[in-house]
Amino acid sequence: MKKRQRTVVALVVFLFLVVFVGALMYGSYSMTAKDVVMTLFGKGDGMQNIAVLDLRLPRAVTAVLTGAALSVSGCILQSVTKNDLAEPGIIGINAGAALAVVLLISVKSTSYYTALGFGTVLLMPIAAAAGAFISFLCIYLLARDNGSVRPVKMILAGIGVNTGINALITLYQLNMSKGDYNQALAWIGGSLWGSSWMYVAMTAPIIIVLILIVFYKNRTLDVMDLGDELAMGLGVQVERERKIFLVLAVCLAACATSVAGNIAFAGLIGPHLAKRLVGPVHKRQIPAAACLSSILVLGADTLARNLFSPLEIPAGIMISLIGVPYFVYLLMKER
């Protein structure tokens, strides 16, 4: 690794630590960085323990897992589709997972303030995976051409499916009770409200294992970036590997959506910035993208719950305020 890249990595890690500690400091009960560190080492008082260990830390860890999962999913989709604008939120995978989770929540709860039970949380990743895979199956079937998947067609099919699913969510909302509507609205906007250690325990092992699998296959992604013909010439079974990577991308997006709702653009911005900072080699890009998107989700969530306190807006809206202009910039750049 070059000296410049080592410096960039060090700065990204430092920024991550600053944002992470900041997420634990600020809220209705503010603390200093020293108080946070002392609490993490078991030397905080009762109020500090509740604020940090019970409320803010599981939420921050959930934000990190969400950002990492979406960014790695975005890295995969951009390489597999050969399109720098691809990410799980844009092509409909997140929307399918969000629709399934919203349906589950509406069945299991009757009030916005009702805590989700262990059984519901246990079913959330399963429901999200089912919704994401149904959405992905529709996209895959629409993108097939003579037995193989056309990357450009997949993007167009994904945009169409994403629009259709969002229309279904809106239609479903019209028939919801007020409590269920509020609960569903939080998921659609992408919110980390109510995150707990139970959420972390359910999703962390799956997300970590999936990211490790993708990282292990980073060289295959590098070869696939060169184009299908050259990749086949180098011995890569392109169609087989493409299917494997698409399944990994869908699972990562589903896990993230199951705990954070439909957060768009986190899987777009992280991989792009990482490619600019450390280059297109996935051995470096994947960890950098995971870290950058984690910073993005953490920062957005911290702003979302403090900017208009005591009101809290969905973190997904904060990310979209950054993501939409960045997406337009990339579109203009592609022309």
Results as ranks from 00 to 15, higher is better:
F41T: 14
F41K: 08
G44D: 08
G44F: 03
D45Y: 04
D45T: 11
G46W: 10
Q48C: 05
Q48I: 08
N49A: 10
I50T: 14
I50K: 01
I50G: 09
A51F: 03
A51Y: 01
V52Q: 00
L53W: 12
R59A: 02
T62C: 12
A63P: 08
A63D: 05
G67F: 05
A68N: 08
A69M: 06
V72W: 04
G74M: 13
C75Q: 08
C75N: 10
I76E: 07
S79N: 14
T81L: 13
D84L: 10
D84R: 05
L85G: 10
A86L: 10
I90G: 06
G92E: 09
A95R: 06
G96K: 00
A97T: 05
A98H: 07
L99A: 12
S106P: 00
S111L: 11
Y113I: 12
A115T: 14
A115Y: 14
L122M: 13
L123Q: 08
L123S: 13
M124F: 09
M124W: 04
A128E: 06
A128M: 00
A129N: 11
A129T: 12
A129K: 02
A130V: 11
I134Y: 01
F136Y: 15
L137T: 14
C138Y: 11
C138G: 14
Y140P: 03
Y140D: 09
Y140G: 04
A143W: 02
D145A: 10
N146M: 10
S148T: 15
V149Q: 03
R150N: 15
P151S: 07
V152F: 02
K153G: 05
M154I: 04
M154D: 00
I155D: 04
L156A: 00
L156Q: 01
A157D: 02
A157S: 14
I159L: 12
V161Q: 00
N162F: 02
N162V: 00
T163H: 05
G164K: 00
